[in-house]
Amino acid sequence: MSNQKQAADPRMQEENDQSSAGLVSAFFAAIGEPIVYVTRTVKELSALFLVTIKYVIAGKRRPDEVVAQMFEIGNRSVVFIAVTLGFLGMILIYQAGFQAMKITGDLTLLGALFLQLLMREFGPTITALMIATRVGTGMAAELGSMVVTDQVDAMKMCAAEPIEYLVVPRFIASTIMVIVLTIVAVLISYLAGALTAYTAFDVNFRTYFDLGFVSYFDIIIGLTKALAYGMTIPIIACHAGLNVFGGSEGVGRATTQSVVNASLAVVVIDFIISGLGYVVLALF
């Protein structure tokens, strides 16, 4: 009963809060609240990350559970990633080819430049966004419903620490699988691009499959990004799931919170690593 009441309440509260507070204080509240929220969330996330790392190093090893989670992640997202990244490859080749035709008419570098951009930027980032969407929400919903049905408390009563028992296998599995899926995604996107280049612009495969531009630097940047995303997504999703309160309402809230936070984190990390990569490249 109280659940249903809450379901109707939040919107009314939102509007009430705004009208009751004065304009100036409302303005500062509007600026201050997100800052407080972001600081607190980042603090909690780093704490969870450190504890998880501690358990990864010193905790019980449960390879079966990790493999099960890896299968779950791969099984859930491989088709989804293939579809979205395949279309991305087609789109980008189309845009780039179209532009190149207009300006220079030279399409010989299309494949090589595309592969480089795919490795540095779009492959890892878009894959991570897709995994945050598909797998992150799943984790948040799963852990969230375990919290609201007291299963997490039951675990604690049985002397199993939820972070060690639930978060660690997901963390390890996701770290590995994001890297694997990124490689798959780059391949699929590159192939989809090849087909588009061939059908739309008559670029033959021999010209397209030119690996001349790719350097170790691109591979390292791409893999670093994938590694960072793979570690961040499960931490954010599990954090959202484990902090659920308030019944089925809460599970929905945690799920949405997890998509938004994980996607935003991916973009922020992308910016940081790209920026650092650029600086490193400029120095050497």
Partner: peptide, 16 residues
Amino acid sequence: LRFDIGLLFQNYALFD
């Protein structure tokens, strides 16, 4: 300490 306590949850809290 929790090894000494058993708790039967209201909604069973079985691991599904």
